[in-house]
Structure formats: C-alpha cells, structure tokens
C-alpha cells in the first residue's frame, strides 16, 4: 500500500513539475514562436530594452517578438532547433538557479522586471565563458530585433540612406530569385553612378515611417 502511495506521490510531483515548466502560457498570435517561446522573448525584450531612457522605444514597442518570429521561420532547421533550445534553457534555468529576491525560482517570464534583468546580468558578467557565450547569442537576437525597428534607427540617425541604384551590365543577366531569365528586371543600361552621399543623405523610404 505504501508503495502505491509513494508512486502516486511521485506522479503528482512529476505532474506538478511538468505543469510548472511547460503549462500556463497565454496563447500567442505569432506564427512560429510557441506560446512559451513568445512569452520568454517578450519578457527578455522588456528586460533588455525597457521603456524610457535615451531611446524611448521598449523592446516590445520595437517589435522584437515579431521580428524573432519571422527570423526563426527564415533560418534552417538546425539553427531553428538551437534557437528554440536557447529560449527553453533561458526560460527555465531560473527554476534551478533562481534570480535574486523573493520568488526568484520561477520561470523567467514569471519573474519581475528587476529579477529578469538581474538574471540576465548574471549571465552577461559570468566568469564562465560558456554562460557569457549563451548570453551573447540571446543578446544578438534581441538586439538585431531592436534595430529592425525603423523608429529606433531614426532616433540614432542610422536609417539606411536612399540610394539610386544604377543598372549595370550584370543586371541584364540575372533574374530575381525564383524567376527564369525572361524575368530579368532590366533590359537597358542606366549606368549613371549614384552621387556620393553625406552625413545628411536622405533616408530610405522604407525607413521613414515610425513606428513600423
């Protein structure tokens, strides 16, 4: 009898652990990121890029989750798996190595903003090269997403410039990807070179509107 009770207790604990690890995430409108991943990316974005400061846009306002959702869809399966593993690790590692403060042993996305930042700071400044490398992988994704926002680029005066593109001989040879050679976009040369730009060059039209 006691054996059955022990088994039942173990099963109950396992269910509780699994639910704590895997369940309870809100539904996500994103196409590629699973709800757990979307919750983690949103939480990490706000920790890395909170509202306010010298660039007002927060990570969420800059659209980092949407950016990473699209990026994840674009990378090959092996890299996608690695990224998903990264999100899983970072979301759950705080269950075992808790963030500072009360209630620090929760999933990353369930932590307070201060605790999230402290947890990430621990990875960033860790004496372990491996942990710092993991952090850099995450920061790379989030930062690229942040800079994917036209409004952020505009504030930093780093928007791509509007450059006239001459038509050179090679442009009469190659069609856009997916089209046959009868789909080459140009039939005549327009070789006039673009003018030398300057610091005040006009912004590319796709990056003039903000936010995106």
């Amino acid at each position: 009898m006691s054996g059955w009770l022990a088994c039942a207790a173990l099963v109950a604990v396992a269910v509780w652990v699994l639910r704590r690890v895997l369940a309870g995430y809100p539904a996500s409108s994103l196409g590629t990121l699973a709800p757990r991943e979307a919750a983690f990316v949103a939480a990490a974005s706000e920790a890395m890029f909170p509202p306010g400061g010298e660039i007002p846009e927060s990570g969420i306002e800059a659209g980092i989750p949407q950016y990473i959702d699209g990026y994840l869809a674009a990378v090959p399966p092996r890299q996608r798996l690695l990224m998903r593993s990264l999100f899983f690790l970072m979301e759950h590692v705080t269950l075992f190595f808790g963030a500072p403060g009360r209630g620090g042993r929760r999933r990353f996305s369930a932590l307070s903003q201060t605790q999230r930042q402290a947890a990430l700071e621990g990875w960033r400044t860790s004496p372990s090269n491996a942990r710092r490398t993991v952090f850099m992988a995450l920061r790379s994704l989030l930062t690229m997403g942040y800079f994917g926002c036209p409004a952020v680029l505009q504030r930093l005066e780093l928007s791509p410039m509007d450059i006239p593109t001459p038509v050179i001989e090679a442009d009469l040879l190659y069609p856009p990807v997916g089209r046959a050679r009868d789909g080459v976009l140009h039939t005549e040369l327009a070789p006039d070179p673009a003018p030398v730009l300057g610091a005040d060059a006009p912004v590319h039209p796709d990056f003039r509107t903000a936010p995106r």
Binding site: M48, G53, M144, G145, F147
Partner: peptide
C-alpha cells in the same frame, strides 16, 4: 544591430 551587440550594460544602461 551587429555593431551594438557587444556594448555593455543591461536595460537602460544598455540603451
């Protein structure tokens, strides 16, 4: 975005 990755700080300090 690539250039900024290695900048120090977290949160507002990173910004």
């Amino acid at each position: 975005g690539v250039t900024a990755v290695r900048l120090p700080g977290m949160g507002l300090d990173f910004k």
